[in-house]
């Protein structure tokens, strides 16, 4: 294994590169992380990486940031976590800062504002198609409780306007309860 300093520098550069050039969200970035750290550098074993990715995906927060944390932690402890996080958030931070500065001026331009208006319908369509695919995934699972939770959460958020954090907490508690029930059943 290389010295800690070399690892940190390599970690910083590769995470920075992945973060700057990955479009399409967290699920894509963790796959690329696997390619980099497992297949190319051989720093992490395949099976362990899959579990680390599972942790990144199931913890709260952005998957790209979580992925950087697990890889950084595995490779170089807390120093690795800090290095990987800074490398991950630096590119979007700079890009969005730049855009924010121009946003107001852009927004007032008639053509740009018309295009942004059209893109609102476009992003609405993207969200609708994502929801449709996820919805189909849940329905295909054929678990009545999941379908019930989905309908309940939708009514709570869209009609009753209940705060999303409360919905997350309640569903998390229901999940905890169900997990315990499952465990009791498997023990019998």
């Amino acid at each position: 294994m290389q010295s800690k300093k070399t690892i940190l520098i390599k970690l910083f550069i590769s995470t920075l590169y992945l973060s700057a050039f990955t479009f399409g969200g967290g699920y894509v970035i963790v796959t690329l992380m696997k390619k980099k750290f497992v297949d190319q550098y051989h720093w992490i074993e395949e099976e362990e990486m899959l579990d680390l990715i599972a942790i990144a995906q199931s913890s709260p927060g952005a998957i790209a940031v979580n992925g950087a944390i697990v890889v950084g932690y595995k490779l170089a402890g807390i120093a690795g976590v800090i290095t990987a996080i800074i490398a991950t958030i630096l590119p979007p931070f700079l890009v969005i800062s730049l855009i924010s500065v121009f946003y107001q001026a852009f927004r007032d331009n008639l053509l740009v504002s018309r295009m942004l208006e059209g893109m609102q319908a476009g992003v609405g369509a993207v969200i609708a198609s994502v929801v449709y695919e996820m919805f189909r995934g849940i329905i295909k699972g054929k678990d009545p409780a999941s379908v019930f939770l989905m309908i309940g959460a939708f009514l709570a958020s869209c009609i009753l306007k209940i705060n999303v954090i409360d919905i997350v907490i309640v569903c998390g508690l229901i999940g905890l309860f169900r997990a315990r029930m499952d465990r009791k059943e498997t023990k019998k």
């Binding site: 989905m150 999940g175 905890l176």
Partner: peptide, 24 residues
């Protein structure tokens, strides 16, 4: 942990749908 997450996933889909409606 993953079992708990299985119960959260349907709710997350529902909340994204609800936010998507606001966007539309």
């Amino acid at each position: 942990f993953q079992r708990v997450l299985n119960s959260l996933r349907p709710a997350v889909v529902a909340m994204i749908a609800s936010a998507g409606i606001s966007v539309l």
